[in-house]
């Protein structure tokens, strides 16, 4: 089985908090990994290190067997959807412009239409990005992440503030990408039910890794499930 990501003894220290403490896990090709943990658990911090945005970490992160400190080539294989895409509200860019930014080879331009169709946003292609609803914008950013045919999709809690219908559509798209196109998905979420339905692997993160394994094993363990469903509602798991 091809190892997509190998994280070994990862520790990330911010000036005031240790956000990640000695975390190790492996993601194999075709995995749909749901990372769950309360606010401040270190999910975005973990992603920032994996994406090369934060290099001040201890331990090793490997993508496809190569240490990301040695080469940035892994970035070409990753599609990333941030927790909150920040941009100037009146930025003069259409949906088409935004998706095209993600495109590494100009030659693949008809790929854009294909992706927009797949995500049900082709009718929006000439609208300005800042004028779309939250759910529509999110699909645009997924389209941007997918336009290079990534092998891995990293999504940081992307459904905050979006209506149920859009969330369902979004989840069915993720499921399809994983099962039909064999894209490895690493996805952080607060929604245990969704993780139960979609993910085949689960990681419980709260500064350290409390659990990592098959989704079935996690959801069979009532204690863990109880702890984490409460933890994602309140923050009492939180102990910095």
């Amino acid at each position: 089985m091809l190892k997509v990501v190998e994280i070994e003894h990862l520790t990330i220290q911010y000036p005031d908090v240790k956000a990640i403490d000695d975390v190790s896990f492996t993601v194999n090709q075709g995995d749909f990994l749901g990372i769950i943990g309360p606010n401040g658990a270190g999910k975005s911090t973990l992603f920032a290190a994996m994406l090369g945005l934060n290099t001040k970490y201890k331990g090793t992160i490997k993508f496809f067997g190569t240490d990301i400190r040695k080469s940035k080539n892994h970035l070409k294989e990753i599609g990333y959807v941030p927790q909150k895409p920040i941009f100037e509200k009146n930025f003069p860019a259409t949906v088409n412009d935004v998706v095209k930014m993600g495109l590494q080879k100009e030659s693949d331009e008809n790929k854009i239409d294909e992706i927009l169709q797949q995500l049900w946003i082709h009718e929006l292609s000439e609208r300005r990005i800042g004028e779309l609803s939250g759910g529509q914008q999110q699909r645009v950013f997924i389209a941007k992440a997918l336009v290079n045919n990534p092998k891995v999709l990293i999504l940081d809690e992307p459904v905050t503030g979006i209506d149920q219908q859009s969330i369902d559509l979004f989840y069915s798209i993720l499921k399809e990408l994983n099962s039909k196109q064999n894209i490895t998905i690493i996805w952080s979420s607060h929604d245990l039910d969704a993780v139960n339905k979609l993910a085949n692997h689960v990681a419980c993160l709260n500064r350290t890794l409390f659990f990592h394994g098959e989704s079935d094993d996690f959801f069979k363990n009532d204690d863990l499930v109880k702890q984490y469903s409460e933890a994602s509602m309140q923050e009492h798991m939180h102990h910095h």
Binding site: L51, P85, I86, K100, L103
Partner: peptide
């Protein structure tokens, strides 16, 4: 063009895209 526009739109995402 793409690099200029992308890094103007969102630096962090542009970085992640290489």
């Amino acid at each position: 063009y793409r690099q200029l526009l992308y890094s103007t739109f969102n630096e962090e995402q542009a970085k992640v895209s290489g």
